[in-house]
Design a protein around this nucleic acid. Sequence first.
DNA 1: CGGCTTTGACCCGCGC
DNA 2: GCGCGGGTCAAAGCCG
Length: 455
Amino acid sequence: MEEHSQDRREIAFLHSGEFSRRDSTSKDHQPDESPVEHHHKSSIKEVDFFAAKSQPKDLGHMRTTIVGSSAFNDESILVNSRLGTSSDDGDDKTKTQISRLRLELERLHEENHKLKHLLDEISESYNDLQSRVLLAKQTQVEGLQQQESSQALEDIKPMDMNNDIPATTLKRRSPDNVDDRDLHRDSPKSSRLDQNKSTNPEEQQNPHDQLPFRKARVSVRARSDANTVNDGCQWRKYGQKMAKGNPCPRAYYRCTMAVGCPVRKQVQRCAEDTTILTTTYEGNHNHPLPPSATAMAATTSAAAAMLLSGSTTSNLHQTLSTPSATSSSSFYQNFPYTSTIATLSASAPFPTITLDLTNPPRPLHPPPPPHFLSQYVPAAYLTNANLTRTISNNYQQLVLPNLSGPQAPPRDMVDTVRAAIAMDPNFTAALAAAISNIIGGGNDKINNNNNNNKK
DNA sequence: CGGCTTTGACCCGCGC
DNA sequence: GCGCGGGTCAAAGCCG
């Protein structure tokens, strides 16, 4: 709500002309030149000026030329020389007019520059709002589902679904628990930094809004001899730790392509197979990406968004703990991609989606028929939200097959990921459904990225 | 000299 | 309360 009013203020500010006047720092700017000071006034004066005077035909042509051309200086010089044969009186007025127009053009250029900057800020705010909408919807749906299945939740038998998920994880991922726990776990030092940065009381009162995407992680496993994979971004190492249960150190990187970019990644070699490098991405970039990085960034971002669309473990278990748990479990167990994958564990407190590029290729399952959900999920579960949620839940533990063979390290990781997703229409469909469900079809950018991945 | 890496210290949440 | 583990900071050193 506050954003709306602020937007209105900014728009009104721009239309009032205050924006350009206050920020104009042109050295040629003359404060007493009222005709070019104000938008409305200047346009009216300009019309009056040409209407009142018995202008030569060239002058009218000059105005048209100046307005229609971006090469103002060249045109003005041309017009100046052409008008050099006019009388001194007309010449002076023309020069005055040209200088005024030049000032106006400079001011407009400056304003254009500022508007571009403003647009960038608005885009940033839009992304932030989008994150908030996503979180709000997720919270809302979780609340509804919790009410519907509160009784069933008490009867959860954790090991019924997946042996890899201990009871502690289930408890920690329950809807009431998620916010508080993730709130505190989410990079404590970042929270402190954010408190310093933000003076907005609303943000401070609702720390839930801070770094919403840091909840989700996208992990990519690939074979690589190098210490890190080339994903197109610039990273700076800021730490290294020995993680428990792995003799290989874990390296921490943050994106340095823009100041304040929240994206971080962890790189660690697999303990069982040191040729496998696990890269875990966290956060969304706040800056444009080079072409070589867009595919990977779009993939991780979309996967994270899909994960956050309702595929938390709590939702998973809520679905399974409902009165139709039997059929849902059957659906889960029969889903083609879930038989060999389990990425959730007690050691992964964040919802994480893993793209595994190391597994030997295995036959891709044919796309399920349009009614495939109805084979396993009762009609009561086929609301739009639940449909998306159910798909997401299964893809939460999806591991994409390796397309380049088990021995050959991926030459270009981005291409490999793109190809893997392109070969998996279910993944693409799930992404599209999940994202469109979250944003209500308003985010064509992600869909476009998704489509680009197909190409 | 600026940017990056290294590395020990520190903070925080969690489990016991 | 204490210890552990994950994550981050920041000073020192390295490098092109």
